[in-house]
Design a protein around this nucleic acid. Sequence first.
DNA 1: TATTGTTATACTCTATAACTATA
DNA 2: TATAGTTATAGAGTATAACAATA
Lengths: 159, 159
Amino acid sequence: MSPTGKTRQTGPDRLRDSVLAGDLSFLLARANALTLAAANAALAEHGLKARSYSVLALAADGTRPTQRELAEFLRLDPSQVVALIDGLERRELVERRTDPADRRANVLVATDAGRALFARAQASARAVELGLLAAVPPGDHERLAHLLRTAAGLARPLP
Amino acid sequence: MSPTGKTRQTGPDRLRDSVLAGDLSFLLARANALTLAAANAALAEHGLKARSYSVLALAADGTRPTQRELAEFLRLDPSQVVALIDGLERRELVERRTDPADRRANVLVATDAGRALFARAQASARAVELGLLAAVPPGDHERLAHLLRTAAGLARPLP
DNA sequence: TATTGTTATACTCTATAACTATA
DNA sequence: TATAGTTATAGAGTATAACAATA
C-alpha cells in the first residue's frame, strides 16, 4: 500500500492511524469542515453560503418561520439571524412580515425570485450531498441520514 | 405523536420536517455544533478545548508530528498551530524539538505531565463519544466510525 | 414582568501576506 | 528556489449586554 517501501512516510497521512482518527468528535469536525468548504464553494456562484442557503431554504418552503425559530433551529444567535436576513432582504429574495398573531415577531417568507434562486442553489447543494453519499453503499443512505438526524438532535434513536 | 392535538405547534421543533432536515450537509453541521459544544464543556475542567485536545492527543501518542503535519491533519492554518502549541508549551504539557533530519522543522512531543493530562482528558472526551453512540445500535458503532472516517477523507469507501 | 427583534461591542476564529532560517 | 515556522493584521464568525416595541 505504501508507494515506496523504504522511504520514511511523511505528510499528514502519517497521522491517519493516530488515536484521533478513532475519535468520533474529531471525525465529525473534520467531515464537517470538508463538507462546509465544498458547500460554500458550490453555493458561491449563487451568491450564497451554507448559512444564507439554510435561511433561504426555510423561507422558501412556506413554513413561515419566526426569527427566533430560525435562530434556535440553525443554532445561531438571534443577532446573527438579523444580519443574514438583512443580506437576503437587500437582494429581494426574502421579506419580513410581522406576525399578526404576535406583533413583536417577524415571519420570514421568500419572494418569487427567492424561490427561483433556491431551486437553482438546491441543485448545486445536491452535488455536494452526492459527494458525501458516494462513500456509502446506496442501501445505507437512509440509515446514514437517520444517524445524522439523531446526532443533530432532530430524531429519536432507533429502538 | 404531537403532544397536543389542536394547539398550533410552535418553537424550532416546528421546522423539524423542513427540507433542511433532509440535507446531509446541514445535519452534519448541526451534529458537529452540538458535539463540539459538548466536547468543549467536557474538556474545560482540564483547561482544554477540542482544538488543544487534538494537538495534545497527537503529541501524546508518540507519533512526533511536525507542525505542518498537524496543520494539514487538523485542517488548520500553520499560524494557528503556532498559537495552539504556544499555549500547551507554556503549561509544559508539550515540547518543540527541532527535527534532526530537517532542522527547519519542529517535532512535537508531550511531557510526562502532558501525557498524564491527556489520559484524564481522554476519559472526559469518551463521555461525549458515548453520548453520540447512544443514538446508534451497538452493532453499528464500527460502521458509523468508518462512515465518518470516509467522510473525513481518512479512509476509502467500502467496496 | 417577559419576550422579539435590533444594535453595539468585544472576543474568538480564520485567512493572508511578509519575514527568518534552513534546505 | 522552495519550504518550515513565525509574526502581524485584517476579516469573518460568535457571544453578551442593552434597548424599543409588544405581550
